[in-house]
Write a protein that binds this DNA or RNA. Structure first.
Lengths: 235, 235
DNA sequence: TCCGCTAAGTGGGGTGGCGTACAGACCGCA
DNA sequence: TGCGGTCTGTACGCCACCCCACTTAGCGGA
């Protein structure tokens, strides 16, 4: 399927032209900026979002200060999955982790369109499968693997979705993603830096050596990637 | 909705009589026994299962010996969710954790029936939502909360689904569910025993004090329960 | 009744990550 | 140029849990 823009959403790109055109008319381009919260747990879903070049994190919190990223939504997916499963409220917080563009649609018209658009349904259900697999695998990863490997995995996953080797992120922020303290992230990051795999300074992180980073990460990175490929959502 | 048997599956129970009758003819009663593996990651799904009074665990492994339960399927749900999301292969291992009865259907006729049975679709998609929420919450729980609280949560969740206060389970087995070592489970369990919340011996565990156990568990137990209620799958 | 096996108790040493505290480094802004 | 705020480095004690090893306790079968 050919790209329709320079930045493409893969779910939308998988839809045949006819059904896509009808959908397109109702999709509204929007720029999302870092730190923006799209959903809070328990609140109703007003829009669904198809990331183009932005990146959205799904977070679960156990208290005020401890949070864990359970899922990552880039241009391979959509934010607002509970809505297509027939639930109006989100279970997680959805946080814009990387600024960029997305297409969004208000939930009411989206419901109408979703119900009559079979290819869209199929693409989104397959995506739901991939997202569940991602959540499951990262759950086990966060339980068993140590900080450095998880950080490496996370950076690789982010790189895949951003399509860039450098992005703005502080250690503090990473701590909330990985379920660590800020100091723990600093230690793991400086170990990777020492080996010239990454570089960073004051909120900018740059990946220098992808292969080396893969070697430092756990197998979970590749496992999740394989699942996305199986669901037809690979890069 | 009235019970159709002494043991009822809540997804099936939520389907209007007309659609249910058509479905029922193709459901095959089956007894599942402890230790049986219904799916392995990467293998195709031959049947879907609706537990009546048995209990199925969804497991993710990171290596040969370390596994973690990411989801629990009792009579509130169905095993084989990837299939309804359009994927023929399972992402997790599905292990029978509690012996008992279930209704099953071969995947091919189930696909036909699922496609024409709107209430069944809606019930299963809502269940998918609840399962995702459960997976997310337990992911955070397994990351942040300590062994004793997680064990208490797990026992309560199991009790809800089995409808009994006593069930056969070894510490070794619990270790695989909670992502701990056997010794870690023994320590946590003996702490709960000392406080007369549970009792156990040689593979039998009995819950003595539900309120006390709730107090020892983390909030995650109640959070997940609330999600199931919201999805219309509560006890 | 004895044996063998599995389940569970126990202990000692090691460590990854936590909590806390503080110091240095860099940036933007006045 | 100096200042305040944010970002990162580092250090120390601590604890939950790990790994390894061995013991004790039940249960079932020959």
């Amino acid at each position: 399927m050919m790209d329709r823009n320079s930045a493409t959403n893969r779910v939308l790109a998988s839809i045949p032209p006819k059904q896509y055109r009808r959908l397109q008319a109702q999709l509204e381009p929007i720029t999302l900026t870092f730190g923006q919260v799209l959903y809070e747990p328990g609140t109703s879903i007003a829009h669904v979002y198809f990331p183009l070049n932005c990146l959205i994190s799904l977070l679960t919190a156990v208290d005020k200060r401890r949070t864990l990223e359970v899922g990552m939504v880039g241009n391979e997916g959509m934010a607002g999955m509970p809505f297509i499963l027939g639930m109006g409220v989100s279970g997680n917080r959805a946080l814009v982790q990387g600024s960029g563009d997305a297409l969004r649609m208000a939930s009411a018209p989206f419901r109408v369109e979703f119900n009559r658009n079979r290819p869209l349904q199929e693409a989104l259900y397959r995506y739901t499968y991939a997202l569940m697999a991602q959540i499951s695998q990262t759950a086990a990863c966060n339980r068993f693997h140590e900080a450095e490997a998880r950080l490496a995995r996370w950076l690789l996953m982010t790189r895949d979705r951003r399509g860039a080797d450098e992005f703005p992120l502080t250690h503090e922020f990473l701590a909330h993603m990985l379920g660590l303290r800020r100091e723990g992230v600093s230690e793991a990051a400086s170990a990777l830096k020492r080996r010239n795999l990454i570089d960073y300074s004051r909120g900018k992180i740059r990946i220098l050596d992808v292969k080396g980073l893969k070697a430092s990460s756990c197998a979970c990175y590749q496992i999740v990637k394989t699942v996305y490929a199986r669901a037809g959502l690979a890069a």
